[in-house]
Amino acid sequence: MGIYLPIAEISVNVFVLLAMGAAVGFLSGMFGVGGGFLITPLLIFYNIPPAIAVATGANQVIASSFSGALSHFKRGTLDFKLGGVLLAGGIVGSTAGIFVFALLRRLGQLDLFISLLYVVLLGTVGGLMLVESVNALRATRNGAAPVLKKSGQHNWIHRLPFKMRFRASKLFVSVIPVLGLGAAIGFLSSIMGVGGGFIMVPALIYLLKVPTNVVIGTSLFQIIFTSAYTTLVHATTNQTVDVILAFLLMAGGVAGAQYGAKAGQRLRGEQLRALLAMLVLAVAIRLAADLFVTPPNLYSLSAAGLN
């Protein structure tokens, strides 16, 4: 069944989009990530213009993170104060991102920049995760108990000034890295159309030593607002949010996420991480290939005077 997307201005198949949403939802339920980093490249492979894929991806992320954050709020595994400080940084980063986005679009380098960011970030995160999970898998096969990093260990981040107490996270830490992390995630959110969970979660755990049980809820909480803000700003400055497209992805996504969560319970943590790492790397390689393969058309047209 074909449907015409009003903003992307192309006809697409409804079932392909629902399936895409469900598949990504399944994976995001399984691995506990927002799925924005998968949705945006998938949309680009499906010939949705990158500018629209990014803005719509941000819109789609709101739905999954909102529903996830609700569960964590009920369970009390959400640190509002930490989330709030991250958010303050996020708004600044996101605003900067939107300006860079509009500038690159005017220069005709937006598509390239999005692809490069994806290749570099997904390649790095995927590679690190793969190495870590394969090591963990080997360790368990050899019978050794997996070594967990102890929280409460201090590093250079804990020597920075302007300390603040976050009770729910049992944390007393400088606001500088928290604001900085929020800003970085906000910037990526507006340029890549991702929630940033795949960077936020490891950063909170390894850099700030936030207890793992509050990390996901807090990260989801901040992602709701960052991506809501990103969506709003993209809608007003670039008019690139396609609600029809976003809704189809969300509808498939919320359904898929529930089954993914169930499936995820049957797999061990390091197996899950290894699978996710391979998936992330596959997306990165596919995007990288497009950068190096000679394009069928060297010339492209675009409207002049567009922001």
Binding site: N59, S67, L232, V243
Partner: peptide
């Protein structure tokens, strides 16, 4: 667009 996403997320849950 933002409200629709939140509503969908809430309904999905």
């Amino acid at each position: 667009a933002v409200s629709l996403a939140m509503l969908t997320g809430w309904l999905g849950r």
